[in-house]
């Protein structure tokens, strides 16, 4: 079973929830898919046994074979290629902008001259290891890189279907999030009852409905803010699966890098109940 933990707004408590849920259940694998700024490892101090480079294939153009027909730049959805046809005896030229390339391979596949081969371009690393009995893996995008989805896909190859897999997704609603949560059996949306929290929750709900992934809401700092998030969930028939109150002890534990359930073991039972609720929802 794959459970994704996502949110529209950042800083609502995805990692707090994902880490503590992972520590409260048996036979779990936790994947931190927020490859632009992974932080779950700060709470878990895993022993990494494996490290692999994540690469994307990028085009290498043989200018001897190239006729500057422009087919490659037409099929490139990300404008990573520029073809400037030659004129009056002047040879054409072709430019490749590697930071825009998603590595889809369309240019190589569709080049009529077969003038394009590929080389690997490193975008980051995937690290996998353990925290006691818990399996853990995360991805780290290299500084300056913008292509999170290919790294997330490579990280997700680590998924161990024999275990309950918990995915800590990046914030927002864009491609890295969609790549992280696709294939999840259930998604927990962490929000807080503030105008910003609600605004971004609504956006996340739209994404999940489009993807057809069953979901529920976990309301963090649930006793602050206003009633509007509760109202919205009632109207939209969305279950609030768990409420975590605002508690300075939780913030203090977080600031020391301690998982919530380690600092406050009484929460273990609440996370076990949350897991049971998820299983009930999926089996319905």
């Amino acid at each position: 079973m794959i459970i994704a933990v996502a949110s529209g707004k950042g800083g609502t408590g995805k990692t707090t929830l994902a880490v503590s849920l992972a520590l409260s259940l048996p036979n779990v694998q936790l994947l931190d898919c927020d490859v632009e700024e992974p932080n779950a490892h700060l709470f878990l101090n895993p022993l990494f046994a494996e490290k692999s480079e994540a690469v994307i294939p990028v085009p290498v153009i043989d200018e001897e074979k190239c006729t500057f027909c422009g087919r490659c730049k037409e099929v490139c959805a990300f404008n990573a290629l520029a073809v400037l046809p030659g004129a009056e005896g002047k040879k054409g030229s072709i430019l490749f902008f590697e930071n825009l390339c998603h590595g889809c391979g369309a240019c190589r596949f569709l080049c009529p001259q077969q003038a394009i081969t590929e080389r690997d371009r490193r975008i980051g690393v995937v690290e996998a290891g353990t925290v006691g009995e818990l399996k853990f893996a995360h991805g780290r995008l290299d500084i300056g890189e913008a292509m999170a989805p290919p790294l997330v896909r490579q990280l997700k190859k680590q998924i161990d279907q024999e275990r309950t897999v918990i995915i800590d997704a990046p914030p927002g609603t864009s491609c890295p999030v969609v790549t992280s949560i696709t294939e999840a059996d259930f998604c927990l949306l962490v929000s807080e009852p503030t105008p910003f929290g609600l605004n971004d929750l609504i956006l996340a709900v739209e994404v999940l409905r489009k993807l057809g992934i069953p979901f529920g809401v976990v309301l963090n700092r649930a006793d602050l803010g206003d009633e509007k998030t509760d109202e919205y969930c009632r109207q939209e028939d969305i279950t609030i699966m768990m409420r975590i109150p605002f508690d300075k002890r939780i913030a203090a534990a977080y600031s020391r890098g301690l998982p919530l359930v380690t600092a406050m073991p009484e929460y273990r039972q609440k996370f076990e109940e949350l897991f049971q609720k998820i299983k009930d929802k999926i089996s319905k």
């Binding site: 404008n79 990573a80 290629l81 520029a82 004129a87 430019l95 825009l100």
Partner: peptide, 18 residues
């Protein structure tokens, strides 16, 4: 409206006009 590479596309458009 291009999400990325607008300068590259515009550069080619202009180049095409010689």
């Amino acid at each position: 409206i291009s999400s990325g590479g607008a300068g590259i596309q515009s550069g080619q458009l202009v180049a095409g006009k010689q």
